[in-house]
């Protein structure tokens, strides 16, 4: 009796093996599709000029050999990989580690003067920050590094001597609709005497307003303290002597 059953079981096992192999092949075939959204976008478009675009570690290495200026502050490695003149702008390309692998960290923050270019005769705040290519990821898919193209407006009178790039901080960006309770809690714990009110997103308005602060505290200080309550920050500075 048992001998009679075995052919059908063998057929079933063989079929199962074939289907399992097909599943494995399907999974392996589709593996590369689990790229990030931004990766998909960078394949579709050319977000930045070819000369500045960095999409592979190979091109990064090529630039690094020309411009190996590296600073490591508080465990965040930052490197200037190139500079150029683009008409009315002096540009600097910078790559940096993303603290805690958080994808929303970036250079600077709310105000342009967190990133400045000092020359022989002036200090110029950044005008534009534009991400270069895709984020870098490790083998586990964690976001580890980002590169940005910084543009500083220069006039014909600008003397590009003793050029120093100073990046005061890397920070996350505030959400469209803030977690007001969380921000207020941070402010209360810091005992700064600041109270804020947040917009709820109606009429597509976000952000916050300060509704109470100590009399002796000026507006700029209060704003900076309150704004920092809604983001994560790694203070630098990272300072690069470029020329």
């Amino acid at each position: 009796m048992n001998h009679k059953k075995s052919p059908s079981i063998l057929v079933a096992l063989a079929s199962f093996t074939i289907i399992a192999a097909a599943i494995a092949a399907t999974v392996i075939y589709f593996q590369p599709r689990t790229v990030s959204a931004s990766s998909a976008r960078s394949e579709q478009s050319d977000p930045i000029s070819a000369s500045a675009k960095i999409t592979t570690p190979t091109s990064l290495s090529a630039l690094q050999t020309q411009y190996p200026v590296v600073q490591n502050v508080k465990g965040v490695k930052m490197e200037v990989i190139g500079t150029s003149n683009e008409g009315a702008y002096f540009t600097v390309d910078v790559c940096y580690d993303l603290p805690d692998n958080k994808v929303d960290f970036m250079l600077g923050g709310q105000y342009p003067d967190y990133i400045t270019l000092s020359t022989a005769n002036e200090t110029i705040p950044v005008y534009e920050i534009a991400k270069i290519g895709d984020f870098y990821k490790d083998s586990n898919g964690n976001y580890i590094k980002r590169c940005d193209h910084l543009r500083f407006p220069i006039s014909p009178d600008s003397k590009l001597e003793n050029v120093t790039l100073t990046i005061s901080r890397v920070a996350t960006t505030p959400a469209e609709i803030l977690d007001c309770a969380k921000g207020q809690k941070k402010l209360d714990e810091a005992k700064q005497g600041i109270k804020v009110k947040c917009s709820d997103g109606s009429d597509h308005i976000g952000g916050f307003q300060i509704i109470e602060k100590p009399k002796e505290m000026d507006d700029i200080t209060a704003d900076a303290i309150a704004a920092d309550a809604f983001i994560d920050i790694v203070e630098g500075p990272w300072v690069f002597k470029l020329k």
């Binding site: 959204a37 929303d104 709310q110 920050i129």
Partner: peptide, 28 residues
């Protein structure tokens, strides 16, 4: 789409303001 994993692709700083191009990785 703005709940989590939102990055900034571009920022410019015109007078008295900040203009950002925001990107939701969740919704692309």
């Amino acid at each position: 789409c703005a709940v989590a994993s939102v990055t900034t692709e571009r920022i410019i700083y015109p007078a008295s303001s900040k203009v950002e191009m925001r990107h939701s990785i969740l919704c692309n």
